[in-house]
Design a protein around this nucleic acid. Structure first.
Length: 261
DNA sequence: GTTGAGCGTT
């Protein structure tokens, strides 16, 4: 039962891919399989995990054989509480090969081989992202901190309460009521970031990049050629100063003298 | 021991 994703995708030519989000980091494919299998024929369940730690990323992909079953699963499992967390089920937007999906249905990968689409070619960003930056950002932490979490935690109690009364209208959730505070949080977050004095690195290089090539004309890299361009040498040289300066700690004497009775 | 609003593998 754990052979999901272990031997690679069995067959994905006529399967509907569903994306399950908001699952707990401890939920595994084996846990989701029976749940989704109950609503239809599940061809494969895959949960992307970190290559370094091997932990789940918090979302899973479930492939159904039929669209109607997938749709039903989405409506039924979307908003369902799994492992104490409300999961979100929706049709996958992108395919495993970064291919376009028609209504959640996976198209045959060979179709791309024909060179059907020549004008737009999707960039293989998934491989690039794996390098470092985005991949880590989206996986590990965002910036929400516990503020949102605290709210979420407090609401959890409500969720449970609401869950009970939601038995009459499961579709009530379709609207997804998270956009409200999401926008608020976003706005505030952005504002904070903008106003924050702690900006990103102010770029050590002052010049934008008008001349990238070294000064071939009067600019000697040494700076010696420059007329008064290099007044720095010994003036600032600590050694010179130190030499001029007499004892490094005249006070020390006094101190010692003072401290020493 | 930790997180989160996100789109995938042999």
């Amino acid at each position: 039962m754990s052979h999901f994703g272990r031997s690679g995708p069995p067959d994905i030519k006529d399967t509907y891919s569903l994306l399950v989000l908001n699952i707990t980091f401890r939920t595994s494919a084996d846990d989701l399989f029976p749940l989704f299998e109950k609503y239809g024929k599940v061809v494969d369940v895959f949960i992307p995990r970190d290559r370094r730690t091997g932990d789940s990323r918090g979302f899973a992909f479930v492939r159904y054989k039929y669209a109607d079953e997938a749709q039903k699963a989405v409506e039924k499992l979307d908003g369902r509480v799994v492992d104490g967390r409300e999961i979100m089920v929706q049709f996958a937007k992108y395919g495993p090969n970064a291919e376009r999906i028609h209504k959640g249905r996976v198209i045959e990968p060979a179709s791309r081989s024909r060179g059907r689409s020549r004008s737009r070619s999707p960039r293989p960003r998934y491989k690039d992202e794996y390098r470092d930056r985005d991949y880590r950002r989206r996986s590990r932490s965002r910036s929400r901190d516990r503020y949102d979490r605290d709210r979420h935690h407090g609401k959890e109690r409500d969720y449970r309460h609401r869950s009970r009364s939601r038995s009459g209208s499961p579709n009530y959730h379709k609207g997804r009521g998270r956009g409200q505070y999401d926008d608020k949080r976003r706005s505030r977050s952005r504002s904070d970031g903008s106003a924050s004095p702690a900006r990103l690195s102010p770029s050590p290089r002052r010049s934008p990049s008008p001349r990238r090539t070294p000064p071939s004309r009067g600019g000697s890299p040494d700076g010696r050629n420059g007329k008064g361009r290099s007044p720095t040498p010994k003036s600032v040289s600590p050694r010179g100063r130190r030499a001029d300066s007499r004892s490094p700690s005249p006070r020390s004497d006094a101190d010692v003298s003072n401290e020493n009775p």
